[in-house]
Design a protein around this nucleic acid. Sequence first.
DNA 1: CTGAAAGCGCTAACAA
DNA 2: TTGTTAGCGCTTTCAG
Lengths: 338, 338
Amino acid sequence: MATLADVAKRAGVSVGVVSRLLNGDDTLRAREETKQRVRAAAAELEYTPNYAARALRKSRVGVIGLAVHDASNPVYSEIIAGAQAEATKAGYALMLSDVDALATDDERFKRFVSGGAIDGLLLQRAGTSADALVSKIASGEVPTVLLNDHTRGAIGSVAVDDYAAARLAVSHLIELGHRDIALLQVDGPRSRATRRRKGWADALEAAGLEARASRVFRGGHTAEQGYRGMSELLMEPTLPTAVFAANVLSAVGALSAAYDRDVQVPDGISLVGLHDVFVADFLQPRLTVVRLPLFELGARAVTLLLSQMENEPARHESIQTPEPVMVLRASTAPPARH
Amino acid sequence: MATLADVAKRAGVSVGVVSRLLNGDDTLRAREETKQRVRAAAAELEYTPNYAARALRKSRVGVIGLAVHDASNPVYSEIIAGAQAEATKAGYALMLSDVDALATDDERFKRFVSGGAIDGLLLQRAGTSADALVSKIASGEVPTVLLNDHTRGAIGSVAVDDYAAARLAVSHLIELGHRDIALLQVDGPRSRATRRRKGWADALEAAGLEARASRVFRGGHTAEQGYRGMSELLMEPTLPTAVFAANVLSAVGALSAAYDRDVQVPDGISLVGLHDVFVADFLQPRLTVVRLPLFELGARAVTLLLSQMENEPARHESIQTPEPVMVLRASTAPPARH
DNA sequence: CTGAAAGCGCTAACAA
DNA sequence: TTGTTAGCGCTTTCAG
């Protein structure tokens, strides 16, 4: 409630001095005694700068937007946490939002960004038309970076190594002795799906195995879609001995589908998921999974965004460390003899 | 980028007229022809009001804060969605945050609220000291309402009928023939835990059964805590035939614990959880659960908060409709004969 | 070393 | 029916 003017009056100086002192302007050359007086006055009045006034003056509000599909997806929460941490460190607040909600009322969203309500946007795409709309509106007005995605041009992006992760998962299965390994493919941005599929294919081929298109099924990125994909897979005349689900939630659904069809995991079929979330450790059997540095993904995305806000060029960044790691649990085992 | 002044100039009128017209001030009596001209100018220049300037002038920023513990908890996502929808409808943006993060840097948080960065706060407490701190800081500065909690005084609150839900769950178990039903108690705000426990006890007593304190175990509100609580329960010399877990996540953990101890659900023991989340439908067995109107909880909380922002008194609101409903799945069955 | 003042874009009260 | 203007709280340039 106290304003700069109040502090200035109480300290017997002008507002200019107070502003510069409190903002750590080192070109300010003031007597130490004056500084003390100002600081004391500010403390006594519990002075807090007004955000709106500062934003108006600097045309920078200090908030960055983070738009995802389905904020309840536990995979995102780690990304969000990373972004949150990094944003806070830089003095920014994070504003979480739902892509589809934004796209529904795109006029409002447009006013929002061009009215200066956010200084930049982090966007998680899923390949829908809502994405395209939101990304077009935002990138025309504020710096934008895509999460776990790949792009050129004015939009930045940062991604984890999905290819390595997929390859790691499939290699693990191969080491266990599997030779017929199916893929439950994600959908969403092409690049993401492609990278994971390539990891699967390359791991297979490196072991002299064939990556057959007939062993690729749609897994989507929800438990329900995973359930459906796995159900289709289980109707094949001859079953693969292992499955790599390119998304945890679809692995959760896949597990449930196997259970419903009386196919034992891992005895009848092995299953590996991509990304680790808490539920993976509470399923029956506990899900083996490969973990990717999602927290870092969120953090680095805001670092990149901040740099774009400083007029650095947009670029793509790939996170190589920490490396993907296998989290061995109970859903994989050597294939049954026959 | 275009300002009010730009629009005014182009339309050949003063800024006052433009402002009042665009804000739908009906005391404005302008010629229809003038209005047209202004609207046309605004459209051509793609005028969008500047948020910071408006906020500064009206000392109202148009954002409300929502602080929860662990935003990844799927139980919250429905509450958040409800709040989001209602806030958007009223022209407010929602800013999601983590209670513990706020409490960690409480100085910053204080500056944040008293600097006018949010107009009001929705707070989900869990009974920690972080809650107390955040709630004290916030309520001293902006209208505050608690989510699924109960309070008096200057802070408002809105709750769903936890008591009825607990009672419903336990009654279901009793109808199935169970006579020895344990409770996996939540922790968190006293009122919430108490309401659920009372529902359990009353349902039991209404059926002439005894609500023994020795049948109450700590279930917490995470899968891990539920796992531990259930593990303790399973070490009892004589086991109950059914368990009511006063939280879904703790039910998820409980199920996992039963599996690890080779206790079959529902054959060896029946299990009901409180609140429905997507994973409940993908566990083995699928979890029977009682569903509460969480979306409404979020929406009504926003409504209440907005009214408090209009200087209405803070009050407590209890959501009675829609009523709690049983979602029957596969984790409950009649008790085994012996 | 410190003060004065302009101005960010908008709203609302008051004039004309 | 429309115009003028003060001022929200802050930062920053320019004087002194």
